[in-house]
């Protein structure tokens, strides 16, 4: 089975973020980066399918030069080769155009299955995978928690809301968006890291994909970003741990009246 995994590199979770001076995006300098969490689960799922069924895992990412690090990590974990969609024209694309570029790159590959995370930690559109499926004419299922491969078909467990699930069958080739928690992602081994150095990362730019910057005009415009104003007035308790604990107990007892 030939599987493509689309993954995104995002700032590490729990980093304190700052905005850029223009207030149009975060300040990206000095950040550390990682593979978007649901995408890491998608990669693991692809590697497990390959181990079970044979085949090839190709990872694909759109983003600036730093993204190579995320692709190397995926190769070190066991992906066979990588596509890096790299062009200044790809910066700041919306979900539709990101999917558009991915679609053009993946059209040139033959594949049975595309996996990607259900959404990214940064923009959080929860759209790119589904749009990609539509542009490639593939059936899809989202928020997947289990995959069974049948004869030319898949049976997948979709997560619904409030603890409900649903099994869905769909024909191959198909695209699935993967929910965090579907598996336990592996760590790269030293051998894997060494081996990854020899694996291919093919760079594809705008012209390689037969696209023009004109075609990639965003359909939605990000105007500004800002820190949200608080919905509630939070009272921050300070001091030594003992002082904080004593004050909290007092507050909960006499102010909130919950103790």
């Amino acid at each position: 089975m030939k599987i493509i995994v689309c993954l995104k590199q995002v700032p590490k979770r729990d980093l304190a973020l700052r905005l850029n001076e223009a207030g149009t995006w975060i300040a990206e300098a000095d950040l550390s980066w990682e593979i978007n969490e649901p995408d890491a689960y998608a990669l693991e799922e692809a590697l497990r399918l390959k181990e079970r069924l044979g085949g090839e895992v190709i990872v694909c990412s759109l983003g600036p030069a730093r993204v190579e690090q995320a692709l190397r990590e995926a190769l070190a974990k066991g992906a066979d080769r990588a596509l890096h969609l790299l062009d200044p024209a790809f910066e700041g694309l919306d979900a539709f155009n990101t999917a558009r570029v991915l679609a053009e790159a993946l059209r040139r590959e033959s594949f049975d299955l595309i996996l990607t995370g259900l959404q990214s930690d940064d923009h959080g559109y929860a759209q790119t995978g589904v749009i990609l499926a539509e542009l490639l004419g593939l059936p899809h299922a989202t928020i997947v928690m289990q995959i069974e491969v049948l004869d030319g078909r898949l049976k997948v467990k979709r997560e619904l809301e409030a603890g409900w699930f649903q099994w869905v069958e769909l024909p191959l080739p198909a695209l699935l968006t993967i929910q965090s928690g579907i598996n336990q992602p592996r760590y790269a081994t030293l051998k894997g890291i060494m081996g990854a150095k020899k694996k291919e990362i093919r760079r594809l730019a705008l012209a390689d994909l037969g696209l023009s910057a004109q075609e990639l005009r965003n359909k939605q415009e990000l105007m500004r970003v800002f820190f949200p104003t608080k919905a509630k007035r939070t009272e921050f308790l300070e001091g030594t741990p003992e002082e904080i604990a004593a004050r909290l107990v007092e507050k909960l007892r006499y102010e909130a009246k919950v103790l």
Binding site: D122, K219, E221, L222, M223, R224, V225, P228
Partner: peptide, 12 residues
């Protein structure tokens, strides 16, 4: 960013 930041967006 998981709600840490908000964005204003419009259709283009």
């Amino acid at each position: 960013f998981q709600g840490k930041i908000h964005a204003d967006v419009r259709f283009a």
